[in-house]
């Protein structure tokens, strides 16, 4: 179990990571989600022992690892661009850490790992001949080779294109679960976090603003900014929030975040709005609505109804697509 207490890292006196405390139980995957420049990669490097702490402590199973050199920590860091050793073949890259430890039966283990990441028969290739996705798979195999007690992943998928990213995220989750690896992933992409992690920590300006099981965080964002970062389309406060919650039949609250599909066109809906614009997508019609008292919001309509700009429509509110926010 990884425990961080009050971890602070500063560059030239400016804190990049500020008083971060985290716990990661064995066998779980924690995603640290935050915009670029929020200090999440620095946090990862600090855990790996590549950045010096200004204060705070990093412990594994209750033992402080602050003075343990990077190569003795048993935490493997997988870099954003893989950082494969270009002068070594794929097999030698994957077997690198095994060779350092003089592990017997090396070839078989390397072959297993390449199978695990779906790249059998790639052993003799050089990294320069691989595509971006293949490189990341090799990097993952190399990282898993010594069964690290903690795997640190720095935006492992962000260098890849969208379709590949989705596929690889699912594979990554499967591989991590299959190998029962404790992992900490940093990313700026909430989809990636949801696809891979069990737990979520949201980071902003060097601080952790919220953490917990991923579903909990998603259902109850700590504040408006977090909600928007988690993919909510809008946040309403005060009277507007009260009106919306009433229309949804939900308990009153000071603020509420709503997903893009929280408002749906329905003849018997309690709210009315005027269509500002509409756009057809394969699954549904996406609308921008001007709802008096609430402002301009996103809404959806079924494909058989396609209201045009200027039309008045009735909408209902889907309570499961709202998230109450405590005192904004």
């Amino acid at each position: 179990m990884l425990s961080l207490r009050g971890v602070t890292v500063a560059f030239d006196g400016e804190p990049a990571v500020d008083d971060v405390s985290l716990d990661l139980p064995d066998g779980q995957v924690l995603a640290v989600l935050g915009p670029s420049g929020c200090g999440k990669s620095t946090l990862l490097r600090a855990i790996a022992g590549l950045e010096q702490l200004r204060s705070g402590s990093i412990a594994w199973d209750g033992r402080d690892v602050g003075s343990v050199a990077t190569h003795r920590r048993g935490f493997v860091l997988m870099f954003q661009d893989g950082q494969l050793f270009d002068h070594l073949t794929v097999a030698r890259n994957v077997g690198y850490a095994l060779r350092l430890r003089r592990v017997p039966d090396l070839e078989r283990r390397v072959a297993e790992l390449l199978d695990l990441v779906g790249l059998p028969s790639y052993g003799d290739r050089l990294p320069g001949t691989l595509s971006g996705g293949e490189r990341q798979r090799v990097a993952l195999a190399r990282s898993l080779a010594v069964e690290p007690r903690l795997l640190l992943l720095d935006e492992p998928l962000s260098a890849l294109d969208a379709g590949l990213r989705e596929r690889l995220a699912a594979d990554l989750r499967q591989i991590l679960v299959a190998s029962a690896t404790t992992a900490l992933l940093v990313t700026h992409d909430h989809e990636e976090a949801f696809a891979v992690a069990d737990r979520l920590a949201v980071m902003r300006s060097g601080r952790i603003v919220q953490q917990g099981p991923i579903a909990d965080v998603w259902r109850r964002p700590a504040d408006a900014e977090t909600a928007l970062f988690l993919g909510y389309a809008a946040v309403l406060e005060g009277d507007a929030a009260a009106r919306l919650l009433r229309a949804a039949g939900a308990p009153d609250g000071p603020a509420v975040a709503l997903r893009r599909s929280a408002l749906a066109v329905a003849p018997d809906g309690p709210l009315r709005g005027r269509v500002v614009s509409s756009r057809l997508t394969p699954d549904q019609v996406r609308l921008r609505l001007d709802v008096p008292g609430l402002g301009e919001l996103d809404a959806v309509a079924p494909l058989d109804r396609h209201p045009g700009p200027g039309d008045e429509v009735a909408v209902r509110v889907d309570g499961t697509r709202l998230a109450p926010i405590p005192g904004a």
């Binding site: 790996a48 990077t70 190569h71 048993g74 493997v76 860091l77 870099f79 190399r142 010594v146």
Partner: peptide, 15 residues
């Protein structure tokens, strides 16, 4: 970072 990657894989500074 290549060297750092090696270090996190367990390579000592000399290695």
């Amino acid at each position: 970072r290549a060297g750092q990657a090696a270090a996190t894989l367990g390579a000592s500074p000399v290695q």
